[in-house]
């Protein structure tokens, strides 16, 4: 039986909860939550969506078991709890950046690499007759990473919250945890092991593979979401630049502007005459081009050099490409 509504699970609390609603609003997908104490909401731009607020790990479970068909959570959570029914639709929504890393006490001046930690694990085993103890909530990723780096004798200490304090209190030797800025690590006298980065994470959009394959409404809904998301993320890369320039004709102006690839825009410059402005008999034109942000200053320099004045720059909200690239990728993956 086909679904009539699509449920999108979003984080209710934690580091990516507020950034998620802000991100969706920036994409044009404002989330309405009628009551802050309720766990449901809606997205007026896509009326068939019901929003369900859950903790980040529960977002994952709800999508995996099909209670929600789509969800936004952290990539670290997805990697920690892989599920065959779960597909990562968009893995870089460009917020919620963090890293899952191995950290040891700063006092361990002899430990600079994971190979040092391998030896410390051996020493603890040989001399103190015990395993290296690592506090973490990411037991699957931690185990897999430690094995892959040659640490085989360790005990994972499951801890919820204040993991960074474990080596100070003494119930663990090292930790595996998420870091954003590293401030908490430093405050707890810990240091990251440079080659101990397990996952570089950010927010991602996930879906239930089985329901995406089976239910046209889910596929159609994710298609609409991805149009907004791709266009908005693409829009962040560009600015609209408007400049006035004196010249003989629109063609001549366009030729000058397009002579530099940086100011060629997405398709080419738009050139329009300005009527009745200077009174000196010269013809003025206004030029509009879309410029990649990384080329902005180069573009302004070139326009100045060819006589451009009064340059204004405005952000671009959306860039809609012929197709949503992420949706095309999803269709190929789903088959």
């Amino acid at each position: 039986m086909s679904l009539e509504r699509v449920t999108l699970a979003l984080p209710s609390k934690g580091a990516i909860a507020d950034p998620t609603t802000s991100f969706l609003a920036d994409c044009g997908l404002r989330v309405d939550k009628p009551n802050p104490r309720q766990y449901t909401g809606s997205i007026p731009a896509i009326p068939q969506i019901d929003v369900l607020f859950q903790r980040v790990t529960d977002v994952l479970y709800k999508v995996a078991d099909g209670t929600a068909q789509l969800g936004i959570t952290g990539l670290d959570v997805v990697r920690e709890h892989p599920h065959e029914d779960l597909i990562v639709i968009h893995e870089n929504l460009r917020y919620g950046y963090c890293k899952l890393i191995v950290a040891v006490p700063e006092a361990w001046v002899d430990v600079e690499t994971m190979l040092d930690l391998v030896e410390v694990a051996h020493d603890l085993r040989d001399v103190k007759r015990r395993n290296l103890r690592i506090a973490t909530t990411y037991s699957n990723l931690a185990r897999e990473f430690l094995y892959s780096r040659g640490i085989h004798h360790f005990t994972l200490v499951n801890a919820e919250g204040a993991i960074e304090a474990a080596p100070t209190i003494g119930y663990a030797d090292a930790i595996i945890d998420l870091v954003q800025t590293g401030t908490t690590l430093r405050e707890n006298h810990l240091k990251a092991v440079p080659d101990g980065v397990i996952v570089e994470s950010q927010a991602c959009l996930v879906g239930n593979r089985r329901l995406l394959e089976r239910d046209p409404l889910v596929m159609q809904t994710v298609g609409t979401m991805l149009e907004y998301i791709d266009a908005a993320l693409q829009g962040r890369e560009y600015s609209q630049l408007t400049v006035n320039m004196r010249g003989e004709s629109a063609e001549q102006i366009a030729e000058h502007v397009a002579s530099n690839p940086v100011t060629r825009g997405l398709q080419g410059p738009t050139v329009a005459p300005i009527y009745g402005t200077s009174g000196d008999g010269e013809t003025w034109f206004t030029i509009t081009i879309i410029i990649a942000n990384r080329n902005l200053l180069k573009a302004v320099e070139h326009l100045r050099a060819i006589g451009g004045t009064q340059t204004t720059v405005t952000p671009v909200r959306y860039v809609f490409l012929p197709h949503s690239p992420t949706f095309e990728k999803l269709r190929a993956a789903i088959g």
Partner: peptide, 12 residues
């Protein structure tokens, strides 16, 4: 440096 505040289970 007070870096010795956290030692895990190892001694100096």
């Amino acid at each position: 440096t007070q870096r010795g505040a956290a030692m895990g289970g190892r001694t100096r």
